[in-house]
Design a protein around this nucleic acid. Structure first.
Lengths: 201, 201, 201, 201
DNA sequence: AATGAATGAGACTTCATTCAT
DNA sequence: TATGAATGAAGTCTCATTCAT
């Protein structure tokens, strides 16, 4: 019985993810959502207090999946650079291969929800027990390979380009093949690593 | 007479900019917009066919202002690096000092409008007469200081971090002082410039 | 269960019929319609896509009822004249006794809808399997009692006076008693029948 | 000065006639009316208290023109039949050649205005000084060629078919050539004249 | 627990009318 | 006198949410 309920909730969340990604929060009526989930409208409200809660729970789940994907196969014995490249590559792979999740997150972070959630997360990340694997990596970088900059700046330099490029990829403007992904990852690394000596310009 | 009319349209656009930035397109009813502009609802429709047209015209204006701001004080006799740093700094300054414009643009690019507009712009940017000053700089870089990568990738590496950081700044998570801005600019440059020889790590 | 649903749609259509007849399409707001039907505004839109569809479906239903009423008790073994008189009498009776239907139809045929619908019907009527009982009668008139004239002309001579008089009756300008109805029917017949010899003038 | 004003008023009425005929009262905004008349919106309100008054005055004018046209060239020394045929023919000619006037009148008579106006006219027509030329003819018919029926019935038999056929003609369903017009006129006469003896069927 | 018909607040938009210039 | 920018009441329609079955 329990697994059945969970299943139904999952079905709704899956339908919501797709619909929100494709049409946006505002253009995805609960009725259509229910229809897509093959469920009565009322049933949605049995599992989620209202539309907002559905979005929040969806965010929580998607974010969790993303976090898991990012740290996959990261060998902590490798160099900071190697680990970073792996993290970025994981990130790109996951979002490229999960466009619904990507679009959902993009929307989420640009909605009123997003602001609060972001502040919440950032505060956590500035504390000791960071959840963000990138921040963990930066803070544990004993080799001093990474620039000494405020967390948000490093975060921006590492994440920003990826999200930006993915948007173009989703719009069909770029083909995200392995070569390109490698270039991106290395570019991001260049942005945060301490430059070697030599003609800086 | 003429300036009066222009003023009224401008008043509406200004109110719209603020309201859209603060509440989002969907949560900014035309009635509230009119109220904020101290204007009758019907008057908005004298100047704009509908809500969409208002948004489009607003985008056009904001984008224009942004473009102007980016290229301000860029000395084309300077090195590619110097020019790049100036462009990035201009970009950050403008958006930091014009949060409404920033939030509006962010929203716009994540709306159905945005997709089309983005594709449109990108296509232009791949053509000969580029409008994007960054792309112009990259393409005219005779000193070979910049990596040879597809336009969208360079674009992402240069722009992405900035937008990402600005979001945090808007949320009050970082203070964007001059030092930080300089770090960001240099980080972006590091991401796209050709690395000097030496230990890659 | 089924009859309950049907009932509700019927209730709305009935309210619409009355309201449209009394106030006209344009002066019958959906809100008032809902109120008269003792139904929420939104409910109307569950059964009808929009106001137009409501009007169209209403037309379909009313027209059907009218067609049924016209051919009632018409004995096809009787003379063309007898059948014609019966048809006309039926027509007058039905419209006199259903003023809402009459006013609705009048309006409908004078609206943008009406034009199309009329052309549509006329085209059908010119074809083989006529739906209009009057046209059927004229075409099957083997006794050559009816003038040889284009369909629309016969139609006009038969129908026109009836509608015209009914308008006066609705406005309270005439009392449509049986004697009057008989006179009308005979008058219409005189208009279309082949005159007997004699001093034509 | 006076003629100038009158001219401008006439211009407005002409534009109104065309617009109302083509788009209907409800779909003819005052702004568009002013535009078509090449006049400021405010100017319309100088000559007409409001939209209703404009419609009323227009009706008055159009009706007057129609009355004039109907009685044109009617020789009172001719037989009742001849006069009748002339009246009907005049009526058809005028309305066929003035589609705007026809459509305007049709609309007018089916609007809330129409009801009142009609009652008003009918009352007059039942009185001594009849304005309707058809009624005058019927009442002055000393030859007893016309059936003895209530005014409205005769009216309906004479007018009804004409209006009905004209609607079809306007919709492009019939070509109103002279032969057809003659048939119509004779048909109408047959409807109201006292039938000659002979096998009534 | 599941359903979906019913609801009505609220969004967008139109347009008759006014009034300052 | 003529104008047309400005207004806001009112109309159509959507959709999140409820609740009886």
């Amino acid at each position: 019985m329990l697994p059945v309920k969970k299943t139904k909730q999952k079905i709704i969340m899956q339908a919501a993810l797709e619909l929100f990604a494709e049409q946006g929060f505002h253009d995805a009526p609960m009725s259509q959502l229910a229809e897509q989930a093959q469920v009565g409208v009322g049933s949605v409200y049995r599992y989620f207090k209202d539309k907002n809660e559905l979005i929040e729970k969806l965010y929580f789940e998607v974010d969790e999946a993303l976090q898991m994907a990012i740290i996959k196969n990261v060998d902590q014995t490798l160099s900071t650079r190697q680990q970073f490249l792996q993290l970025i590559t994981n990130l790109i792979h996951f979002l490229r291969d999960h466009p619904h999740e990507f679009k959902f997150l993009e929307q989420y972070y640009h909605s009123p929800f997003g602001i609060d959630k972001k502040r919440e997360k950032l505060l956590l990340e500035n504390g000791a027990n960071q959840k963000n694997p990138f921040m963990q990596l930066f803070f544990s970088d004993k080799t001093k390979a990474v620039k000494t900059l405020p967390g948000p700046v490093l975060h921006a330099l590492a994440f920003g380009p990826v999200l930006f490029l993915l948007r173009d990829a989703m719009a069909g403007l770029v083909e995200l093949d392995d070569a390109l992904i490698e270039h991106m990852a290395k570019g991001c690394w260049d942005a945060i690593r301490i430059s070697t000596a030599g003609p800086a310009q």
